[in-house]
Simulated assay, not measured.
Amino acid sequence: MPVRLRAALVLLVALVLVGGCASRAARSGAADPSASVTPTAACPIYEGQEMPDDCVPYDGEAMMAQNDAYRQRFEPTDESRTEVEPQRAAAQAALATLVGGPLSVDAVRDALEAAGFDRDAPWVEAAGDPAAASSIGVIISVGGLCLVGTLDGEHAEVETDGMIADGGCVPAQ
């Protein structure tokens, strides 16, 4: 490469580099004190606290609520509740037969199976020892709704509830 061409190329590169630094200084506000600051961070909003100029504000409480939105249950309509009422009543009656006796996951599954539910379909969880629990929770998906039941030594209750926003009756763990 000829010496003149090489010198021209070096001069061109130097001009580009110097021009880039000058434009970066102008963008940062050093040359113009009235230039706006470019936000560099997201900052949570706190009542009564002033937000720094270089922050983009966000509502942390609202973001946490959105983060858990997949767990929220839909409210079932009266019509859909009426459609699954026979299954709710059957589950209620099945759990009621276990009140006062020893509680176990197997006993709950047996009672629900005798009431016409698939033995493996309900989600059943015992509080404490699964073989001799103090209380048991039951969730059964029926007709696009959830039957949510509780059973302990003194009472059994099954209510109709909506599916969670994520789909299904039980949130993913």
Score class of each variant (00 low, 15 high):
S135T: 09
A62K: 00
S135L: 11
D120R: 14
A165F: 09
A126E: 05
L95P: 02
T97R: 14
G116E: 06
R27T: 08
C169V: 06
V105P: 07
I45C: 05
S135Y: 13
T160H: 06
A172C: 00
A22E: 13
E47V: 11
M64Y: 09
P76S: 01
G167L: 11
S36A: 11
S134I: 05
L98M: 08
A121I: 02
E79R: 08
S134A: 10
M163Q: 15
V99Y: 04
S135M: 14
D129Y: 02
F117P: 11
D118I: 00
S28R: 06
D152L: 00
E79Q: 07
A65D: 15
L147R: 08
G167C: 04
G137M: 12
H155S: 15
G48C: 03
L11T: 10
Q72S: 12
C21I: 09
M63S: 06
W123Q: 09
G100L: 10
S104W: 12
A65H: 09
V105K: 13
C21M: 11
Q92A: 09
C43Q: 04
L15Y: 06
G48P: 00
L17N: 11
M51R: 12
D32W: 05
Y70S: 03
D53L: 05
V84M: 04
P86H: 12
V158W: 10
